[in-house]
Simulated scan of single mutants.
Amino acid sequence: MTKKALITGLTGQDGSYLAELLLNKGYQVFGLVRRSSSSNLERINHLSGDIQILSGDLLDQSSLMDVIAEAQPDEIYNLASQSYVPLSWTQPALTAEYTALGVSRLLESIRRCKPDAKFYQASSSEVFGQPDESPQTELTAFRPRNPYGVAKAYAHWMTVNYRQKYNLYNCCGITYTHESPRRGTEFVFRKITHAAAQIKLGLANELKLGNLDARRDWCYAKDAVYAMWLMLQQEQPDDYLIASGETYSVKELVECAFNCVGLNWQDYVSVDPAFYRADEPVQLVGCIDKIKIGIGWQPQYSFNQLVELMVDYDLKKLSS
């Protein structure tokens, strides 16, 4: 029998890659999209004939119940949220409505309409904020330091509580920063690979960045969505970190990206205090022992391979 999956956040980076993965595995895929949404559908245009789009909104529980009742999904992946950290400071209440309370509405809709569905909640390493240990594990205390992290912490614990209270198959994947050519240029990894390509092609002559010493645990979005799918294929639900287990500095990222285009980054990159992030989290890096041992997942792409892949993409896109 064909499995059915419902994805919220379909038009985002992760949603589009997850939809491709599920379609390749023979799923019937439904995507939840706000009726009034002006979302960029570019990431899923190539899948438009293969996915059934349903109208719903995380702010409206009745619409979520209608969508679940219509789709009758075997698996539900909640990838929708207000996910840009700086914006969470300027729109904290809206971030809470979508990223926190939206998950409550979704969980309650699942409980009422399709309690046998398997549910994946996209948690974030931002729940750790300034952690008291590094690397972090699934048992590291949550200490979020921005409204987005606070909202994700609420959503995480509601998912766990619904699993415990109602015996639902609920999983949380605590994802660290994951990148791809489908990432927006407002995010530092893509900003850097895009700028290196622009400068190489003579379309720009400088790149301004914030803290070059900031370190991140970066992995490829395709690897991350495979982990999401794998989590819902297990006999028992559980929560896992999805990370690379390694950190690299912004400076190392810049050097690698400019090396890909044969340029010396120091000739083009300057530091601008305006780009320093408030409350810069310290050494966010995930220990992936549990997910490696428990379900056999680990990243397939190295840091250098990811940088090369994205620089190549940006060179081709800007040249076309």
Rank of each mutant, 00 (worst) to 15 (best):
Q61A: 06
W229E: 12
E235S: 11
I76P: 12
K4I: 04
N205D: 10
S88G: 09
A243N: 14
Y27M: 01
Q13E: 05
R43C: 07
K191H: 08
L32D: 03
L87D: 15
L139C: 11
T159V: 06
E108P: 12
Q130N: 14
P147N: 13
V160M: 05
P92Y: 02
R34G: 01
E308H: 11
N40W: 00
D217F: 06
T193G: 10
T11R: 06
K200A: 07
W265Y: 09
V127P: 15
L23W: 00
K25T: 12
L168Q: 10
H156Y: 13
M158F: 06
H156V: 10
A100V: 03
K292C: 13
P115D: 05
G184R: 11
I174F: 03
N304I: 05
I291C: 12
L263Y: 04
Y166W: 03
V127T: 13
L241K: 12
I293R: 15
F189W: 03
S123D: 10
Q52L: 06
Q72D: 13
D238N: 10
Q130R: 15
D223N: 12
D267K: 09
V33C: 00
D272V: 00
D217N: 15
P115Q: 07
E308L: 03
Y169V: 08
F189C: 07
C172L: 06
